Simulated scan of single mutants.
Amino acid sequence: MNSCPCGSGSDYIACCEPIIAGKKTAETAEELMRARYAAHVKVEIDFLYDSTHPEHREWYDHKGTRVWAANSEWHGLEILGTTQGRPQDEQGEVEFVARFRDGKGLHNHHERGKFKKEEGRWLFTEGIMVKPKPLSVNKVGRNDPCTCGSGRKHKKCCGK
């Protein structure tokens, strides 16, 4: 079995390959997102261009995308959630993390991809980077119970 790089668990020839080859259209925004990730892995750059909405191709760098995709190690796609993007919808959003390694190191590309359906075909419009959430630190007061679970006050236990 040649597992699809999109992480669906299906065989590539039954999953993303027909979409990338133009034999089938993606039924949902998530299907298109998965196919676009697989296209990066398989260096199918023409599909990436063709599946980008024409109004959003202005800054597309065909050659640069090809070089980057070919020189990266792809470590997986995680779909975190979708908003709309079903077959009956006209637009959708897919939040995902794509993991890859390039010459600069290991990356977790966390994005909310926007999609629009035109003439029955889903197209990628733009990606909005998701910033990491700041670490939250719970401040323990001197007289609060100790976080270690001893039952003593923090100042008399781990806060010494």
Rank of each mutant, 00 (worst) to 15 (best):
Q88I: 11
A38R: 03
R112I: 14
E17M: 10
A39Q: 06
G151L: 06
V97N: 05
R101A: 13
V140E: 07
H75Y: 11
G9D: 06
K24Q: 15
T82V: 09
R66Q: 15
P132T: 00
V43H: 06
D46K: 04
R34M: 04
V97I: 14
V67Y: 08
G105Q: 10
E58D: 13
G76C: 04
A98D: 01
G120R: 07
S150D: 12
I19Q: 01
K114L: 13
T125E: 02
G76Y: 01
R34L: 03
F47G: 02
M129I: 15
V67T: 13
E126S: 14
G64L: 07
S3D: 15
N138S: 14
D11S: 14
G76R: 00
D89K: 02
L32F: 08
G9Q: 03
K131D: 15
H40V: 02
P18T: 08
G113V: 00
K116T: 13
A70R: 13
E55S: 12
V137F: 12
K131F: 11
E118H: 10
G113N: 04
E93W: 05
C15Q: 04
F47R: 01
R121I: 14
S136W: 09
G81Q: 07
A98S: 10
I20K: 03
D50L: 09
G76N: 01
Y60P: 00
T147L: 14
V137N: 12
I45Y: 00
K24M: 13
V97H: 08
H107D: 12
K155A: 05
N71Q: 15
E55I: 06
G151E: 11
G127D: 00
H109K: 10
E44L: 07
V41P: 02
E55V: 07
E58K: 15
T52M: 03
I128F: 04
T28E: 09
W59I: 11
V94G: 00
K155S: 07
V140P: 03
C15R: 01
G81I: 06
L123G: 02
R142A: 12
C16M: 03
C148H: 04
P132H: 07
R99T: 13
E93F: 07
F47S: 03
G92L: 01
C148V: 09
K153G: 10
P87K: 03
E17W: 04
V94S: 03
C157A: 01
K104Q: 13
K63F: 10
E73Q: 11
H75W: 10
C158P: 00
K104Y: 09
E95F: 00
E78C: 10
D11F: 07
C15F: 02
G105Y: 06
R121F: 04
Q88V: 13
D61P: 05
C4E: 03
